[in-house]
């Protein structure tokens, strides 16, 4: 029973740690499926987290914070879009620039306003996205096995978490069952064909980049208004890059993306839980080994030793319309 309880605790924390990954990963999926490579997820997440915390601090409203976080992230996405789509820039360079500017700018402005080394003031509960209790939580609580699972894993999460879990099937449906999705996938594989069909490559890619901005902005909002109650410099702590790894690991597909992000979230939860723990027969497992596992797994997959991760064919390639 003790093992079961600690498993529930680990899984619950895996969900909490997985949510920002899911949102950022699916965000990257939209962008990259349209042919725009995005290594700037980290910077946009940070921007979203910062804008959300600042506006929530001044207005006291979580929803105003959410709107600000998403708007800021979309604005940054549009810069990346302008560089990648209109200026035909190297998309890796553009993403790198966004990561640097976001990292410096959020800390700089936060420090200039509150003089707390870039940290924003602690937000009251009313300015945060609080866990919501689904019906029958209290009634089911005493039931063994089912009770803890329902109250810790299924119920008692905030709205952004539920949205994150809905976004994978939604994305799957949009990409594979709608006309927009078909065109978007086509533009990432063979933009010339889409152009020949009389559709705007530019319009489709801008659309994808903006969807990406909304989703990754939400992951930032989650960091500052749900997981924590403030913004802190560098608080995304590489989550944007883990999401990128998850995207590669999931081979740019929505359902595997959801599963991979939960797996990486689980590994993160495990590494926190395993600090100093001794496994019989193995001795102390170094926390760093578990932390490095997502990256190692992604490299091994990329190397083609377990299946092959093939990116969308036109990703990273600016489209030049023939004249």
């Amino acid at each position: 029973m003790e093992i079961f309880d600690s498993l529930v605790v680990i899984f619950a924390s895996a969900i909490r740690l997985g949510v920002p990954l899911i949102l950022a990963c699916i965000a990257g999926l939209w962008s990259e499926r349209s042919g725009v490579v995005d290594i700037g997820l980290e910077g946009k997440m940070l921007t979203g987290a910062f804008a959300a915390a600042v506006v929530a601090t001044f207005t006291g409203s979580a929803w105003a914070g959410l709107l600000a976080g998403v708007t800021a992230s979309v604005a940054v996405s549009l810069i990346h879009g302008y560089a990648s789509i209109d200026q035909r820039a190297n998309q890796i360079v553009s993403g790198t620039a966004i990561n640097m500017v976001a990292d410096g700018m959020t800390a700089l402005i936060g420090n200039a306003i509150w003089s707390q080394g870039g940290r924003t003031p602690q937000l009251p509960d009313s300015a945060l996205f609080q866990p919501i209790s689904l019906p029958f939580e209290a009634a089911l609580a005493p039931v063994p096995i089912l009770g803890p699972i329902y109250s810790h894993l299924i119920s008692h999460h905030d709205l952004i978490t539920y949205f994150a879990f809905a976004i994978a099937p939604l994305t799957y449906w949009a990409l594979y069952s709608t006309r927009f999705g078909l065109r978007l996938r086509a533009v990432g594989e063979n933009p010339a064909a889409v152009d020949t069909a009389g559709l705007s490559v530019r319009g489709l890619r801008y659309g994808a980049v903006m969807i990406c901005g909304v989703l990754v902005g939400l992951s930032g909002v989650y960091l500052s208004l749900a997981q924590a109650a403030y913004f802190q410099p560098h608080m995304s702590a590489g989550k944007g890059f883990i999401a990128l790894a998850a995207l590669v690991f999931a081979k740019w597909r929505p359902w595997p993306a959801l599963a991979t992000c939960l797996l990486f979230g689980f590994l993160d939860a495990l590494s926190i839980r395993m600090q100093g723990a001794v496994i019989p027969g193995l001795g102390e497992v170094p926390v760093q080994a578990i932390q490095a596992l997502p990256y190692v797994m992604t490299v091994v997959l990329l190397a083609g030793f377990i299946g092959k991760a093939i990116p969308p064919k036109a990703s990273g390639v600016p489209y030049v319309k023939e004249r």
Binding site: Q87, A97, A107
Partner: peptide, 26 residues
């Protein structure tokens, strides 16, 4: 000037990458 923290240098660095790299043809 404590308001201009060392993060400013990271901002400049990023802007240089943006303008000299990504938007070099603008």
């Amino acid at each position: 000037k404590p308001k201009i923290s060392r993060d400013m240098i990271v901002v400049i660095q990023g802007l240089v990458v943006l303008f000299a790299g990504a938007l070099e043809h603008m």
